[in-house]
Design a protein around this nucleic acid. Structure first.
Length: 498
RNA sequence: GCCCCCAUCGUCUAGAGGCCCAGGACGCCACCCUUUCAAGGUGGAGAUCACCGGUUCGAAUCCGGUUGGGGGUACCA
């Protein structure tokens, strides 16, 4: 059913896609999809100095990668820009802001301010020294036309200040109920257009949200204090304010606002480390929201079906990487074979480029490995740790590491030699896990060893690791020839040691 | 400083006056399975529901205060 609900995500291309932005985008997306509304993406690129095309691409690509789609804005369905409210980039909407500012000026809801930055800075310092709250003193609030002309003649640039009316501004926040703030605490009349003519964020969001008929503003809690300013401007522009919903913040593990300094904040980094989009989306959704049941694993579509703003938490949520890893493992186990293989390939290719492995295996080879690796992968990148030794030409194994705790070098040497003999005697055609185990078990039996000791010595000798998938499956994957070769190398080194 | 918001196991959370001397999940510990590592199974430790006062027959749930934490206070976004 059609709906008048319109929500938006408005990222600034001043940095790579941040987890906080992705989370806010996700909640807006879920709300839009759940209600049958429209989801808009608008780029807030007015900070020209810090905005770049590369960041813009990273943000749009990252959101797309997560499976988050929008109905209007840049990059819809591969198109440059789509939607009835275009353009969706603020730098192309400058005339809209100029028009709105002119209107506020004409109706005296805003006025030109000729105060210099140094003067404002001095005021602020004085207020701080007097332990008073910082606020604009209103020096230019009641200038006569003549006084304005005189200031302008001095060569002072004119910024535009919005008149803050006295009183209390309140709204019914969808996640935190009624919020009321006295405008006396807003810091006085605030600037909406800089002296150089560039509009400021607080002003552009409001003008755009009004112009684009945004019905619900769903954003981070860090904007709660700014909301009264926005409501005042919506009113001044003659527009009914949208409904607001302020989401709890994602916090660093120490409880402070998430930052690059203390956490990994770029979505691209999580992608590079082998986290699945399903896991990221699932985890993000559960930071601040829960279905109210004991279910934990949800797909994007399932989330959209269940999502309700009313069930959003008020308090901030600390980012817990361990939990993300668990969710990631859950999703890796749920993926179909073909899907998993294709997602694994890029990581194998990257490992080859990085020199961690000497060749990139084929898809068939990787697919055959799935039964033994799937539940051992906390992330896609972990594939290299789990079975990377399969694609290494020269495995340098420290002979000391091969020797089990209960054994010495000589015993290990003899045991491996015996194992090698047993394996060499085995027919190459029937080199299967079920076939390899009995002869080695028999060996253990006749020598009176612990099976674990022999298996561990073989494991380390052939893989260089003490933790691998089941040994016989590993040897099968390695192949008869390389198994024997690696055993030979180990035996030789042990002979030198002993 | 001033304004605003928040407050249930270490973490994410369930809980909307009696079903709660508080449930689930991650993590942690133990055991089982087992050639290692995972995965899985079972069990366990872990929260006097921040504190203090109210309201009520009855409060984690309502009210007030305190404390703690967070956010905001720009001619940044």
């Amino acid at each position: 059913m059609p709906s008048d609900i319109r929500v938006r995500i408005a990222p600034s291309p001043t940095g790579p896609l941040h987890i906080g932005t992705a989370r806010t985008a996700l909640f807006n997306y879920l709300f839009a999809r759940h209600t049958g509304g429209t989801f808009v993406l608008r780029l807030e690129d007015t900070d020209v100095a810090r905005s770049t095309a590369a960041f813009e691409k990273d943000i749009l690509d990252g959101l797309h990668w997560l499976g988050i789609t929008w109905d209007e804005g840049p990059g819809v369905a591969g198109v440059e820009e789509a939607g009835p409210y275009a353009p969706y980039r603020q730098m192309r909407r400058l005339d809209t802001y100029a028009e709105a500012a002119a209107h506020l000026l004409a109706t005296d809801q805003a006025y030109p301010c000729y105060c210099l930055p140094e003067e404002l800075e001095a005021d602020r310092r004085a207020q701080e020294a007097a332990k008073l709250p910082a606020r604009y003193l209103g020096r230019c609030a009641a200038l006569t036309a003549g006084e304005r002309a005189a200031k302008a003649a001095e060569g002072r640039p004119a910024a535009t200040r919005f008149r803050v009316r006295p009183g209390v501004v309140g709204w019914n926040d969808l996640v935190r109920d009624r919020v009321e703030i006295d405008t006396a605490n807003l810091g006085g009349d605030f600037v909406i257009v800089r002296g150089d003519g560039n509009p400021l964020y607080h002003f552009t969001v409001v003008v755009d949200d009004a112009a684009m008929e945004i019905s619900h503003v769903i954003r981070g809690e860090d904007h709660v204090s700014n909301t009264p300013k926005h409501i005042l401007m919506f009113e001044a522009l003659g527009h009914t304010p949208p409904v607001f919903a302020h989401l709890p913040l994602i916090l660093n593990p120490d409880g402070t606002k998430m930052s690059k300094r203390k956490s990994q904040t770029a979505v691209a980094d999580y992608i590079a480390q082998g986290f699945l989009k399903e896991a990221l989306v699932n985890y993000f959704a559960f930071m601040g929201w829960s279905p109210g049941t004991e279910e934990e694993v949800f797909s994007l579509a399932e989330l959209a079906e269940r999502f309700e703003l009313e069930k959003v938490q008020k308090g901030g949520a600390r980012f817990d990487r361990e939990r993300l890893k668990w969710v990631n493992g859950q999703w890796i186990r749920r993926l179909g074979d073909e899907d998993l293989v294709s997602r694994l390939m890029p990581f194998l290719e990257a490992a080859a480029v990085a020199g961690q492995i000497d060749r990139t295996p084929g898809e068939d080879e990787v697919r055959a490995l799935l039964p033994m690796v799937r539940e051992r992968l906390p992330t896609l990148a972990a594939i290299v740790d789990v079975v990377g030794y399969l694609w290494v030409d020269d495995l340098a194994v420290d002979p000391a590491a091969i020797i089990p705790k209960r054994w010495d070098a000589a015993t290990t040497h003899d045991a491996l030699a015996a194992a090698r003999a047993a394996l060499v005697a085995h027919d190459a055609v029937t080199w299967e896990a079920d076939e390899l185990e009995p002869p080695l078990r028999a060996l253990v039996e006749s020598w009176g060893w612990k099976a674990g000791d022999l298996f561990m010595a073989i494991r380390v000798a052939t893989t260089g690791k003490t933790a691998t998938p089941p040994l016989f499956d590993t040897l099968v994957a390695l192949g008869r020839e390389r198994t024997i070769a690696r055993l030979d190398a180990a035996i030789e080194r042990l002979a030198e040691t002993a």
